[in-house]
Design a protein around this nucleic acid. Structure first.
Lengths: 157, 157
DNA sequence: TTATTAATGGAAACCATTTTCATTAAGGAG
DNA sequence: CTCCTTAATGAAAATGGTTTCCATTAATAA
């Protein structure tokens, strides 16, 4: 598992290569943005961040690249119920700490939390192993999300 | 918590009433279909099932009703990454057993599983309580999903 | 350097979902 | 039971995130 920026690039490089993908400027730009931003970016968010530095990278490429990255397991595609997909670097991509989400169903605010991670990891490991074997499923990722009303929204009613 | 069909209807009736919603034929039809079907229905799935018996219930009403039911916590809105939302009766709506999903990112096949539920429930109870207090979040629902490649799709590579 | 073919961008297409608006009907008041 | 208020509805149109098309560009292997 890579550590620094250089090694990380090498890693992506390798992942791309061995799957027959070409490493282009646009893709590197997108990976760069993702690794520098805190999660939950929509395709358009990524576009807005990439555009100033690389004005010739179109939104279509953002979508295509995010799909590729998602298929490779490098980014995780999320849905918070606001009609657009969100993307963040998947765990295992160094400096990404294991976390999950608390989503307000009213204002769509999202809180990352890292509590109970140890117990959670224990259960997840067991579950992944058990389910993987039972259903012959090759598990690559998981999502845990809690839904409810946030501080402000629960007060309003 | 209601048991039979009659009591269940009473329960919905009450939930609707106390929130100022009117109980219409269309809404009852939709609830009826949801309670008779195994989960993971898209809005259009519901429409197709409701239509033969109630041809004058439009797709718009299906969407509107599913939203209302989702807000009331009667149904749970899910996303399996295939571009359309899925709905199923939320837990706590009797005969709905606590379960989660195993989603194939290649063919979108979904497997329900109920393994490790006891340990999971323990963790969830703790997490909900802890997070609820810490962030002053009123948690009403949660989702746990594992992603990966199913039996068939992992063999293909 | 050249040839092959994946990658790209811009425009158009797609399609699930939402909005609009005129009409209908649920449910409380009398 | 009837009337009245207003939520609910359906059909059509609008919306908007995402994908597809296609001609052009550029990354990689030979």
């Amino acid at each position: 598992m890579p550590g620094g920026n250089c090694q990380r690039q090498e890693w992506w490089h390798g992942k791309f290569r061995c799957c027959g993908y070409r490493l282009t400027l646009g893709r590197e730009a997108i990976l760069d943005i993702l690794s520098k931003s805190e999660g939950h970016l929509s395709a358009e968010d990524v576009y807005m961040k990439v555009h100033p530095k690389y004005p010739n990278v179109g939104l279509t490429t953002i979508y295509r690249t995010l799909n590729v990255l998602s298929n490779l397991g490098i980014v995780c595609k999320l849905d918070f119920g606001d009609g657009r997909s969100r993307y963040e670097l998947a765990e295992g991509t160094e400096d990404t700490h294991h976390h999950h989400h608390l989503v307000c169903t009213n204002c769509n605010k999202v809180i990352d939390y890292t509590d109970f991670i140890d117990e959670e990891l224990e259960l997840l490991r067991k579950t992944e192993k058990g389910l993987g074997a039972k259903y012959n499923f090759k598990i690559t990722n998981h999502i845990i999300q809690f839904y409810g009303l946030c501080d402000k929204c629960s007060g309003k009613e």
